[in-house]
Amino acid sequence: MSPSGGRTIFSYCTDPETLGRLAWASCYLTTGKHMGLYWSFLTVLALLAITAPTALLFGFGGAVAARSHFFASRWFGRFYISVVRGVPDIIFFMFFVIAIDQGLEWARHQILCPDWTEPIRQGNDFRVCPAAKLPLSSAPQWVHEVYGFFTAVLTFSIVFGAFAANVLFGAMQAVPQGQLETGAAYGMSRRQTFWRILVPQMWVYALPGLSNLWMILIKATPLLFLLGVEDIVYWARELGGSKTARFSDYPHGDWRLWYFLGLLVFYLVFTKISEALLERLMRRLSRGQATLGATV
């Protein structure tokens, strides 16, 4: 997102052609464009941090709907789970962002501009009243960026929420029937059994599936550039591509290989750390549970 603008970090960077290799590298790696790359690592991490709980929430809703006794919500829950999971995620990424954006603007248009007479669809154009635009066209750039980030989070959450719903659905089924019957025997209502027994007990069954989902989520982030977020792949491509001296102070050949190798290392390290942390979490959750994991 925001590179540091026109400033250079080191004062000697004004004329890079004359510099030695080390000084050149220090200037090259601190250009505003590289700041964009470093910033994008944070963007990806922030997106993961926000998407994971949101997707879990969607998943919880989907799983509850799929278990529901009402035909309509059961049908909706199962449809959501099976359709989203039957289609490659990249297909959703190709058109979801525009769909979400238009959907939100359409809804705001209905609420905010009831007197608007012009049609929203004019030929190919999608026009809502100015007050319904998201974000407002007078909004500063950072608002547009935050909004773009938000639609990306929402897209990821809808897609991965379906996977989470499937895991949670399975986990709810896996909670031993006896535990639920015990609840009933204590005179708990269905609702009480659900919140006081089923939900606390299901996590240990859900965790292996959710850990895998987290790994999947990490590995889906290279597709973020499809959602309008300038992610690490966008910058690696942009920075690695060959530069001519006419348009850059730092001309170089095709360096994409090195940038992508850097990304590879980043993902391997990130996966390794996540694995270790999830392993510890699993051990803590299984304490006192009647599963194989606990007896080991």
Binding site: M215, I218, K219, A220, T221, P222, L223, V233, R256, L257, F260, L261, L263, L264, Y267, L268, T271, K272
Partner: peptide
Amino acid sequence: ILVFRGSPLFIQFFLAYF
């Protein structure tokens, strides 16, 4: 197993083509 499971397929394709 670590390299192929721990990195995105997107990046594997790119590096492999290179």
